[in-house]
Amino acid sequence: MANQNQVKAKKHLGQHFLRDENIAQKIADTLSLNGYKDVLEIGPGMGVLTKFLLKKDITTHVIEIDTESVEYLKNNYLNLADRIHEKDFLKYDLTQIFKDRPFAIIGNFPYNISSQIVFKTLEMRHQIPEFSGMFQKEVAQRICSKEGSKVYGILSVLTQAFYEAEYLFTVPPSVFNPPPKVDSGVLLLKRKEHYKLPCNEKLFFKVIKTGFQQRRKTLRNSLKIFNLSDNLKANTIFGQRPEQLSVSRLIELTSLIENDIN
């Protein structure tokens, strides 16, 4: 493999290239590879993780916005050339690559767009049974946090409504070039068997976002925009704050609201 310095990390793209091959192998090995044959790596950079994915019995695709990285990958991973997609993951219609086939997502994600990557994954959850990758440690912990935690919020609830989230291990700044100022964390999301909610999903997203935007208020106060009946607001669940409720209780709350407003 060519010199690590061949591609210069670009600050505006949030690039921190992983240099430690043992960690790259560990991340590649987090996927179970069950129920799908395609994997999409986001932001492969110089391919330290890609190399280990290519050894597996799957079809690896990579999506990369950085022209210099794309050039490097084409020159160094010849067998990958026709599966390098020079696109912006957040803006690109992934059905152009996968049609309606299932695929997993993996990557060492740029910190500045990592939450948006998760939200896009949630939109495509019917096609994405597994998701694994590296985030800023705080974000990875937030995604996996449970009710009662200070960091439990919109990202935690919406992700865990559809996926089992597991924080796997912490990665120090020293294994990156350039080193970030914070630790990183690797997590794994496995889609739940029953990932369709027993309530209106659009309403669920709206209830969660509205409730957590005023997380210090009780639900009786933060959900006023729904014009709920006095009878429903008398339910003890409305005396709690959203961060006190588990994902299943928040789904239950949405069902109560749905019945009330219909």
Rank of each mutant, 00 (worst) to 15 (best):
S115E: 15
P110T: 09
Q96L: 06
Q15F: 01
Q15C: 00
V186R: 04
V171W: 09
H194N: 15
I117W: 14
F17C: 09
L31Q: 10
S246G: 00
R220W: 02
S255K: 13
V157H: 07
S255P: 01
V62E: 03
H12C: 09
Q244D: 07
L33V: 05
I237M: 07
N200C: 08
K192T: 13
E21H: 10
K190G: 02
Y111F: 13
R241L: 11
Y163I: 03
V182W: 11
F17E: 09
E166V: 11
G211E: 01
N34W: 00
T254S: 10
D66S: 02
A9Q: 05
S114H: 13
N227I: 02
P179L: 14
I208F: 08
K150R: 10
N262C: 08
S184M: 13
T50S: 07
G148K: 04
K74P: 00
Q214C: 01
R215M: 12
K224Q: 14
Q96A: 09
T210R: 07
N75I: 03
P180N: 10
D183G: 09
K146W: 04
R101A: 07
A165D: 00
Q4G: 00
S174H: 10
P44V: 09
F17L: 09
N221G: 01
F169G: 08
N235S: 14
H61S: 02
S246V: 03
L197H: 14
R83M: 03
H194Y: 15
Y77C: 08
F135E: 04
L54G: 01
G107H: 11
K217S: 06
P129A: 11
Q4N: 09
I208C: 04
P178E: 14
Q4A: 11
N79H: 01
L232S: 07
Q244N: 10
C199V: 15
Q244W: 02
S222C: 13
G153H: 14
L253A: 06
S229L: 03
Y167Q: 07
E138R: 05
G43A: 12
E64P: 01
C144A: 09
D38R: 15
F103L: 01
E164I: 02
T95M: 10
I84N: 06
V186F: 12
F109Y: 12
N76S: 11
R101P: 00
L122P: 08
I261D: 03
E130C: 10
F17R: 06
L219E: 07
G185I: 12
E243N: 07
S246C: 00
T159N: 03
I143W: 09
M124R: 12
D29E: 12
T60A: 08
K202N: 13
I63F: 08
L189I: 13
Q160G: 03
N231T: 13
L73I: 00
S184A: 14
L188G: 03
L223W: 06
Q6N: 04
L155T: 02
R125W: 05
G14S: 07
K55R: 15
R19L: 15
P242Y: 08
K10C: 05
I143R: 08
N112W: 05
F169L: 10
L94R: 10
N79D: 11
K87R: 15
T59R: 06
A24F: 01
K209G: 00
K190I: 14
G45Y: 10
N108P: 02
M1A: 09
R125E: 05
S69C: 09
Q15S: 00
L78R: 15
I84V: 12
G153P: 11
I208T: 06
G239T: 05
I113S: 06
S149W: 02
E243Q: 14
V182Y: 09
H85E: 06
